[in-house]
Design a protein around this nucleic acid. Structure first.
Lengths: 230, 230
DNA sequence: CGGCGGTACATTGCATACAATAGGCGTGTC
DNA sequence: GACACGCCTATTGTATGCAATGTACCGCCG
């Protein structure tokens, strides 16, 4: 990797923008449930816990607010955002539209190399499926979708999707297992459409794919409500 | 008393969150061109200029970064974001998709009262058109689109659209005059589709409408490039 | 015993001070 | 004369301190 564009990404360790580390740490704490929805985040406590001053904490909280992770009530402080059922549905709907658009763009621009990469990721996903590796499935799925957005070349779209996607995964992770075989069959059709450069078909397939995910979520949500996970 | 919609818990004036005021001030300065794209924003200067300390400035800059207004290079500071042609195209594309989805949702949920409100806004727009009032046209157009999103009831979508919309308007304002008669004819058809509850048609019309706007922009951009405005 | 007011505490918001880093400029050497 | 090294300054990153605000508890009065 001698490419100068990526070589200087982080040679050893940048002066470590502390707020970034704090942001990641807090996002992780929220995503994995250590910080529960609705919980009041006291700056001093977090600062003490993470071993930094309140300043980076504040800046991280601002950004977490901008990304929809926490609510910021003036003079009250930060509270972990509590997602409602309605909001989840809206998130999924928006995600579906954005992903469909990304598939549309990807089908228009994909090169042979792009398609090859997609097929690799598809293979990785099927391998994880065969190995019954839930964690690997989630990663492979994310990688595939991320790759499609990247191929579409639309950076604005990529930003928006990643924003929505992280919140979706946050809510999904504790209650839903990743979809299995059907999802990867749909992926295969989708990749074929992209390889053909058939933008309309790719868009339709992606829409169907994400809407199917919504259905799965609905069922899983009901199941989880009946038998909450520990 | 817990209902946030009717709480009206701000009778006189909130303690005025300074960072918010700073955010608005800076966004305005960027939008109206006082702060030029690429310009280096020095915290001390801004603090001095706005009469506050660096702290609220920093927090506002963070948020401006999150919303795509400024670039934040670690240890270098903030620079006003320079939009590229490519990025503008991507913004418009994403906006088109999101707006189409909002029309879809609005058509599904619109009540008679909603439709009445849309017709009022349509009338206001046509009045501005007749009066040859560009400023009024822009406002009426924004109000109409905003209303449609609101009717769709999708708050996540509303947030995303407003994010994209502000940046689009920032870039558009200096070079493009609002579209005239045709835009409002399209609006009328769109409202009719929403009133009929025909989600698919509303979506198609909105897509066509925004794509038409993209075309107009392209022509205006060329014109502006040939004869730059003063 | 219940409602009300006042006070004290906890927490945020803002300001200032200090430390660290990056880039520019000048000087010294080859 | 050109390059490299080192200092210097400007700017950001982080920490701490202080004031304002909202909340909750406790005592007091009806």
């Amino acid at each position: 990797m001698r490419d100068p564009a990526t070589a200087s990404a982080r040679p050893v360790a940048r002066p470590a923008p502390l707020r970034q580390a704090v942001y990641d740490a807090l996002a992780e704490l929220i995503a994995n449930g250590t910080l529960r929805p609705g919980q009041h985040l006291v700056e001093s406590d977090l600062a003490d816990y993470l071993g930094v001053s309140r300043q980076p904490i504040r800046e991280a909280l601002q950004r977490l607010h901008g990304d929809g992770w926490v609510e910021l009530r003036p003079a009250h402080g930060a509270f972990v955002h509590t997602p409602t059922e309605e909001e989840i549905g809206q998130l999924l709907g928006v995600r579906s539209v954005l992903e469909a658009y990304s598939a549309y763009g990807a089908a228009q621009r994909a090169t042979a190399a792009d398609v090859a990469r997609l097929r690799e990721l598809q293979a990785a996903g099927e391998a994880a499926l065969a190995a019954d590796d839930p964690r690997g499935l989630v990663d492979a799925n994310a990688a595939l979708h991320s790759c499609i957005v990247q191929i579409s070349g639309n950076k604005v779209l990529a930003d928006l999707i990643s924003l929505v996607e992280r919140r979706v995964r946050w809510y999904f992770t504790p209650i839903a297992r990743p979809r299995g075989r059907e999802a990867w069959i749909e992926h295969a059709s989708l990749i074929a459409a992209i390889a053909d450069g058939d933008a309309e078909r790719a868009q339709q397939l992606m829409r169907g794919h994400t809407e199917q995910t919504i259905e799965t979520y609905r069922k899983d949500a009901v199941t989880a409500a009946q038998a909450p996970v520990g």
